[in-house]
Design a protein around this nucleic acid. Sequence first.
DNA 1: GACTAATGTCCCAAGAATGTGACATATCTA
DNA 2: TAGATATGTCACATTCTTGGGACATTAGTC
Lengths: 188, 188
Amino acid sequence: METTERKIIEAAIFIFNADPSASLETVADKAGVNRRTLHRYFNDRMQLLEHCKKDMMQTCQAAMSQAFSSSKEPLKQLEMTLYAGIDCGAKYAFLDQLYSRTSYQQLPPEERETTFDTIKSQWFKLVMELQKQQVISNEISTAWIFLLFGSMISNTIRAVHSGDVAPNDVKKFAWFSFSKSIGIKSHE
Amino acid sequence: METTERKIIEAAIFIFNADPSASLETVADKAGVNRRTLHRYFNDRMQLLEHCKKDMMQTCQAAMSQAFSSSKEPLKQLEMTLYAGIDCGAKYAFLDQLYSRTSYQQLPPEERETTFDTIKSQWFKLVMELQKQQVISNEISTAWIFLLFGSMISNTIRAVHSGDVAPNDVKKFAWFSFSKSIGIKSHE
DNA sequence: GACTAATGTCCCAAGAATGTGACATATCTA
DNA sequence: TAGATATGTCACATTCTTGGGACATTAGTC
């Protein structure tokens, strides 16, 4: 079964993803819980945010790790990582926003650094390796590729959300576009 | 010279772009104007938003139109359109957010429809033409391409903002990635 | 200088969101 | 069932935001 804490976090991620400045009342409602109860679990809005962050880190990290280990082939790993990101979906997008929104950018630097680090370092190694092997283009920087990766995930979420792109096509499109956007010539 | 109204709108776009729920005080400060003055120009938060929207439409539309007319070659037009989007920069991103954020999605449908229409229809014709000519891949849908276009612009803005990608590289990267992501084989 | 429009300053009232205390209920467990 | 634990309910103070009234002050204009 689901604990109340989890229900709240889940709701918070969902709600804040749509609107980062939504009221805690809204979150509590979504969680099917009284606002007072929410406050019992999380003293503070910030505390709730922190827990969301932790939750997302775990979820994404797990999905990413699995993606990495699903194949020995670097290119396949990259593809699987993208799919993992897409599957984390809303959660990822929220995290993304959290860190691009100025209001949260005044967080202590070490906070910002460590969040992605475990996922990110694996990912970077992978990409740099592929660049060395000339599988990925050297015309663009690794940082740019990283941003592309994130934006492709956001884009995929938006695509599904907008209803303009068929959900079944979306992963295929995403990999098609991402792989080419980083200069991969073709794939089976 | 710049009118007070313009200064406020400019500031509003800048501020709301970073945080859509920022206070009007913040906007007024950014504009170097008293909050009371802001209220004299715009009765309402919504009214301010409307004016921002109008401003952005004009700016973007002008830039896009110019991009379209800068060349006869469809592919070059597309490239120029992307650059125009990037140059609109923050403004575009704001518009983008405005329409993807749920809170604004409850706007009357005709509002949403007409906003982009003039730009969008030209753009769509162009892309569909290029797809027909097999310059752009048919494996992906036009809607997806449109989303990619927007997300590439947002991404470019973020890249510059993050400081991880050199501003001088960014447009080049953007076109490199975008053109390939939609299946364009190569370009001079 | 006198008159007018624009802006700044100060104040206020309504509303929303936040965080918390006190107490009633409900739910679980020994 | 009794006792503990978790939730709901209500009430409250606090703060922030918003919009606007009243009036002083500054810039322009004739």
